[in-house]
Design a protein around this nucleic acid. Structure first.
Lengths: 223, 223
DNA sequence: GTCATCATGTAAGCCGTTACATGATTGC
DNA sequence: GCAATCATGTAACGGCTTACATGATGAC
């Protein structure tokens, strides 16, 4: 879970721990939240396992990595700009980069058919779905959909419950239904995009060339 | 969390561990799920703390407690009926009952203004809301609402994210917005019910006399 | 010189899980 | 007798949190 998030973020460029957490909260705050007390040990573990490696203060990497950090107040933006010009220092600041082994590990984590596919886990996976092959994306969506349908089915439409409990169960069920509808949309979009790819050969680059680096579907296709 | 669920269920009548789990999964499966490995230690802990006590095989309690267990296939229903007639045995089957101390503990847990008010925790609390005083119910709803609003506010409308990540964030935000709308409905309903109580004195018993036992608002009013 | 922010880490603990061990009862 | 279900428990571990310790740097 955490490893997936870290490796996924690092695939977009080298970062240090503090910045990783900042981005996780700012960008994926809905789906991934993490404290320093778990982040730093995780980074150390990943480094020991050879999935990431620390750069030797090549700090240009970092400055290029955060050109538009988005919503800062004018005061804080000026502060940050000044720091970027002056650069250096700021304690040790270990900047990490993903290794080849880390890339492989990321792929494994990402399309693992594995156990605990709760909503957090799925959300995180899907937010890195661009690294999956189209067929794997579809498989992920349909696996998740099947789970939610099962969850809905297991709900005994509880008459004998008091109004408060019933309202909770009802709302939760509605949420699951809404999730299923969302997944249906995503599934249809994926199907469409796949058939587009096969019919109109190598025209329409808008979907595949979304970003500069990171060629799509680099995580290999299982299923 | 677990204690709250256990005590809440036991307030409706004595139960043994296996049955507690069965009910949690069947009735509150959306909001509370628990394994034996955590349930039994929790019961032992609660017993040691004096919050619950074990009945001395007064098994009539249990038979009266499950008259309509709901969706069983005909075969299984017959099986169950036969067992209820034959009764007894079935290994030790420790049946627990809530003590006065347990009731107090339950109240504390229920309207604790305490920290981790995630969606699971709130859902569980609200499903026992009938045990809260109206003012506490309202406070709980509004506390939760404020949290969700804050969560929504912290979401940086992430343009620079790729479409997959963006769709996750978007859907999560929609879910939060939906939760807020739900809370608004509940808040309005509570307000209405409170003003009804104050204006039309002691007429309209439909809301207050929902169930036989368990007088409402037995958990005391903080705030 | 002191405070806020950036930055990294460690230690203790909470809350839950899976996996395992045991045993009674009933159906076939 | 054998398997399934009911029933209770223990042990080991996982993943994350809070709280704490440390230290550099820039703003005022």
């Amino acid at each position: 879970m955490l490893d997936l998030a870290i490796l996924g973020l690092l695939k977009e460029g080298p970062l240090h721990g503090y910045e990783i957490r900042r981005r996780l909260r700012a960008q994926l705050g809905m789906v991934a939240n993490v404290s320093f007390g778990s982040l730093y040990p995780a980074l150390a573990r990943l480094e020991a396992a050879g999935d990431v490696e620390a750069l030797a203060s090549e700090d240009d990497e970092l400055t290029t990595a955060l050109p538009s950090t988005g919503s800062l107040s004018g005061e804080r933006a000026a502060q940050r700009a000044k720091r970027l010009v002056g650069a250096r220092g700021r304690r040790s600041r270990k900047v990490y980069r993903v290794t080849d082994a880390g890339t492989a590990h990321f792929a494994t984590l990402l399309n693992a058919s594995s156990g605990t596919d709760d909503s957090r886990s799925f959300g995180l996976r899907w937010s890195f779905a661009r690294h999956l092959a189209p067929s794997s994306r579809l498989a992920l969506l349909e696996r998740r959909r099947a789970q939610l349908v099962q969850r809905l089915g297991e709900t005994t439409d509880s008459e004998l419950l008091d109004p408060y409990a019933r309202s909770v169960v009802k709302h939760a069920a509605d949420g699951v239904a809404s999730d299923i509808a969302w997944l249906d949309d995503l599934i249809e979009a994926e199907r469409t995009s796949m058939s587009d790819m096969s019919t109109s050969d190598r025209i329409a680059p808008s979907a595949s060339a979304a970003r500069g680096a990171n060629s799509p579907a680099d995580a290999g296709a299982n299923n």
